[in-house]
Amino acid sequence: MDDLTDVYNELIMEHSMNSYNKKKLEKADYSEIGHNPNCGDEITLELKLNGDIIEDMAFSGHGCAISQASTSIMIDTLKGKTMEEAKEIIKTFIAMIKREITDEEELQKLEDAIAFKNVSHMPARVKCALLAWHTIEDILNQKEKEKENGK
């Protein structure tokens, strides 16, 4: 890593230290725990839907600066999106971290979450950045299954 300030940039530090998304939702439709046994990071992600739209999200738990900021910025990015749009963004974020997508233009849809691009150069921290995104993926997959089962 040449310059760590690329990773621990202002946006990431702000979200990791004092996130307004770290709270409890009054009425959540889904609540899912994301756990990274290697480093002990654990988050609980809450999600409230309005039809197909992600109306609100919040998180609680503890972890490193990267996992905490990634969770908070993900919430900012996905709030107000349809489930389909969210899935596309999640896919792009995971691909960015795994260095499968590097094209800046393609990454624009990630909005602030593009700030984690440099984590892709730090293999030891990939899991931290992806924790929340895998957790929301689980929720959306679960929702899809419910839909298929006609719930």
């Binding site: 890593m1 480093c39 002990g40 972890g63 990267i66 921290r125």
Partner: peptide, 26 residues
């Protein structure tokens, strides 16, 4: 106020190898 994982990354950028994460013994 700083998670051990972040401390280890920052020390690593200075060429210092330390054990981070939660201790092996939960």
């Amino acid at each position: 106020g700083v998670h051990p994982h972040d401390v280890a990354s920052i020390l690593d950028s200075e060429g210092v190898c330390v054990r981070s994460r939660k201790p092996l013994c939960a």
